[in-house]
Write a protein that binds this DNA or RNA. Structure first.
Length: 414
RNA sequence: GGGGAGAUUCCCGAGUGGUCAAAGGGGGCAGACUGUAAAUCUGUUGGCUUUCGCCUUCGAAGGUUCAAAUCCUUCUCUCCCCA
C-alpha cells in the first residue's frame, strides 16, 4: 500500500474509501492533488474540524498537494449532513468575515505556500451560477430517488428538509468537478458525514469528464463515552484563543479519558507512532504523563510552543503547586474594591468562576470553593488586601477550575 | 390556497385557571471515591436577598380574571395531510 495512506491508516484516520487500491496506486504514481471542504459558518473552527487538516499535513509531507476549499458559496445554503434541524441562514457579510478568520487559523496550522497547500473558495464559481444552465448540465445527473436514499436526507425526512438544503449535495459535487478541472484534483477527504456528498461528486466527475476520482473519509471523532469530541461546558473547543483560552484548550486534552489517549495522540499530534504507542500503553497514574504530553503537543500545534509552555506551567501550578502560578487565568480587581472588603460571593463572580451569586453560593454551600487553599465555610466571609499572598489570591471552584485574582494596576492618568 | 397539529426553563419532555420557578430524563455543576481518568453513589441546577420575600421566565403582542404556561384575539415560525 502507498506509504502516505499507510501512515493515515496507522494513525486511525481512515474510515471509508471509495477505492482503496485504486487510490493507493494513483498516489504511488506521483503527487496527487486533494481537497478538504470547510464551511465558514462560524467565526472560529473547533478542534473537530481539524482532523482532515492533520491528515492534510501528513499527505502534504508525503509530497501531495492539498487544497482547503472554503465554502463561501455553500455556506449560503447550509449542509444538512449530520444535522437534525434546518440551519440558520447566515448573512453574506458574516460568511466573508468568517472565511477570512478561518483561513487565518488554518494558515497557522497548515501554512499555505501556494504550492503544496493552497486555498480556494467555491464562492468563485457558485455565486453567479446560472440556474437553468446548472440544471441542464449538472442537475440532470442527479436522481432524486437516489438522493433520498442517502442517510443524510433520510433522517431529515422526519423533521423536515428544505429545498435549499436538498441542493447542497449538487453544489458540493459541483465543487469537486470544478477543482478537478482547475487543479486536477483527484481526491476529496473529509469527515464521514460527508461520505454521501463525496461519492456523488465522484460520480458526477465520472459522468461528465469520464475520469476516476477518489474519496476518503475519517471517523467522526468521539470520546470513549460517546460524546462528540471537543465539546466542553462552554460549547466547542475553539481554536480562537479569545473563544477558548490556550489554558482551557490544554486542560481539555489533559483531562481526556484513559481510553482516548492513544487515539488522540495518533490523530492530534505528529509524534512518531511508536512514541504514541509507548505513551498510550502507560498504566494507571503513569498515564497522566501521556496526557500531559498530549495536551502540550496539541496546544503547541494550535497555539504555538510558547502558549503551550505557559499552559503547562499554569496547570502544574494549579494541580501540583510547582509550576508558574502567574500563568493561570487571572482577573483584575479594583484596589478600592479590595480595600473596602469584598464578599466571597462577589469575589467568585468577579473571578469568573461563578456566573451568578446564586451559583457562587451553591458552590460554597456544597464545599467546592476555596481561597488560598482554605475552604470557604461561610458565604459572608469578606476578603481584603491582607488575604493577598504574593500579590494574588488563588481561588478554586471545584477541583479543576482555578482563578487568580490580582489588584488592577493603577491607571496612568491621560 | 384548504384542513390539522404544535412552539415550555441548556436539551428532550410533562403540565390545560390558583397547591408552578414549573414533574421526569439527559446534560452541567458540586461532594464522596480517585490518578486533574472512567464507573458508581449523593446533592444541586432562573436571578436578587437568604429570613420572610421580591423580580424575570413557558414562541410574540394584546385581552379576560382577584389570579394564566394554562382561557380569548391577532401575529410569527415549524410539522403533517389535501391541492
Amino acid at each position: 500500500m502507498n506509504d502516505a495512506l499507510t501512515i493515515l491508516q496507522e494513525r486511525g484516520f481512515v474510515q471509508q474509501c471509495t477505492d482503496f487500491e485504486g487510490l493507493s496506486k494513483l498516489m504511488d504514481e506521483g503527487p496527487v492533488t486533494f481537497y478538504i471542504g470547510v464551511d465558514p459558518t462560524g467565526p472560529s473552527l473547533h478542534i473537530g474540524h481539524m482532523v482532515p487538516f492533520f491528515a492534510l499535513r501528513h499527505l502534504r509531507d508525503a509530497g501531495h498537494r492539498g487544497i482547503a476549499l472554503l465554502g463561501g458559496g455553500t455556506a449560503r445554503i447550509g449542509d444538512p449532513s449530520g444535522k437534525t434541524e434546518m440551519r440558520k441562514l447566515i448573512s453574506y457579510e458574516a460568511i466573508d468575515e468568517n472565511t477570512e478568520r478561518v483561513v487565518k487559523q488554518l494558515d497557522r496550522f497548515v501554512g499555505f505556500d501556494g504550492v503544496h497547500a493552497l486555498t480556494a473558495n467555491n464562492k468563485d464559481w457558485l455565486a453567479n451560477l446560472n440556474y437553468i444552465e446548472f440544471l441542464r448540465d449538472i442537475g440532470r445527473h442527479f436522481s432524486v430517488n437516489r438522493m433520498l436514499s442517502f442517510e443524510a436526507y433520510r433522517i431529515r425526512m422526519e423533521t423536515g428538509l428544505s429545498f435549499i438544503e436538498f441542493n447542497y449535495q449538487l453544489l458540493q459535487s459541483y465543487d469537486f468537478l470544478q477543482l478537478y478541472k482547475r487543479y486536477n484534483c483527484r481526491l476529496q477527504i473529509g469527515g464521514d458525514d460527508q461520505w454521501g456528498n463525496i461519492v456523488s461528486g465522484i460520480e458526477l466527475i465520472r459522468r461528465i469528464e469520464g475520469a476516476e476520482c477518489y474519496g476518503l473519509t475519517f471517523p467522526l471523532v468521539t470520546t470513549s463515552d460517546g460524546k462528540k469530541m471537543g465539546k466542553t461546558e462552554k460549547g466547542a473547543l475553539f481554536l480562537d484563543p479569545e473563544m477558548t483560552s490556550p489554558y482551557e484548550f490544554f486542560q481539555y486534552f489533559r483531562n481526556v479519558s484513559d481510553a482516548d489517549v492513544l487515539r488522540f495522540l495518533l490523530m492530534f499530534t505528529f509524534l512518531p507512532v511508536e512514541e504514541c504507542r509507548r505513551l498510550g500503553s502507560l498504566k494507571d497514574a503513569a498515564l497522566n504523563e501521556a496526557k500531559e504530553r498530549l495536551a502540550w503537543e496539541v496546544t503547541s500545534l494550535i497555539h504555538g510552543k510558547e502558549e503551550a509552555d505557559k499552559a503547562l506551567a499554569a496547570a502544574r501550578a494549579a494541580f501540583r503547586g510547582e509550576g508558574d502560578a502567574t500563568q493561570l487565568p487571572t482577573t483584575e480587581i479594583d484596589r478600592a474594591r479590595l480595600e473596602a472588603g469584598i464578599g466571597a460571593l462577589d469575589l467568585f463572580v468577579a473571578s469568573g468562576l461563578a456566573p451568578s451569586k446564586n451559583e457562587a453560593r451553591r458552590l460554597i454551600q456544597q464545599g467546592g470553593a476555596s481561597v488560598n487553599g482554605r475552604k470557604i465555610e461561610d458565604e459572608r466571609q469578606v476578603f481584603s488586601a491582607k488575604d493577598m499572598v504574593e500579590g494574588a489570591m488563588m481561588l478554586r471552584a471545584g477541583k479543576k477550575r482555578v482563578a487568580r485574582v490580582v489588584v488592577k494596576k493603577e491607571r496612568q492618568n491621560t
